[in-house]
Simulated assay, not measured.
Amino acid sequence: MSKALRRMHDYVDPAVFYTVIRIFLSGWKDNPAMPQGLVYEGVSEEPMAFSGGSAAQSTVLHAFDELLGIRHSEESTAFLHRMRDYMPPPHRAFVEEIGRAPSLKQHLLSSGDARLRAAFNQCVSALAELRSYHITIVTKYITIAAAKAKAGRAEPGDGAGPSAGKPPTALETKGTGGSHIFRFLKSVRDTTREGMISA
Rank of each mutant, 00 (worst) to 15 (best):
1 M>R: 12
107 H>I: 08
179 S>G: 12
25 L>K: 04
82 R>Y: 02
13 D>Q: 11
80 L>K: 07
27 G>H: 07
95 V>D: 03
42 G>I: 07
86 Y>F: 12
109 L>C: 04
140 K>A: 15
74 E>T: 14
25 L>Q: 10
151 A>N: 05
158 D>Q: 09
113 D>E: 11
61 L>V: 13
130 L>E: 02
1 M>H: 12
26 S>T: 15
145 A>H: 01
159 G>R: 02
187 S>E: 03
119 A>Y: 06
185 L>V: 07
26 S>L: 01
190 D>Y: 05
185 L>N: 05
31 N>V: 08
27 G>V: 07
32 P>N: 08
135 I>Y: 06
131 R>Y: 01
132 S>P: 00
194 E>H: 11
185 L>G: 05
193 R>P: 00
16 V>A: 14
152 G>Q: 02
144 I>Y: 07
28 W>Y: 15
89 P>M: 06
94 F>Q: 02
126 A>C: 03
100 R>Q: 14
107 H>N: 10
139 T>D: 14
123 C>T: 01
162 P>D: 15
180 H>G: 06
104 L>F: 07
54 S>E: 07
80 L>Y: 02
37 G>Y: 06
126 A>F: 03
19 T>E: 10
163 S>P: 10
119 A>V: 08
150 K>S: 13
171 L>E: 05
166 K>H: 10
119 A>H: 07
70 I>A: 08
10 D>W: 02
141 Y>R: 03
147 A>M: 12
6 R>Y: 10
172 E>K: 09
2 S>N: 13
121 N>T: 05
91 H>N: 14
127 L>C: 06
42 G>D: 09
38 L>D: 00
73 S>E: 08
93 A>M: 05
7 R>P: 00
88 P>A: 15
132 S>H: 12
150 K>T: 09
150 K>V: 03
4 A>Y: 03
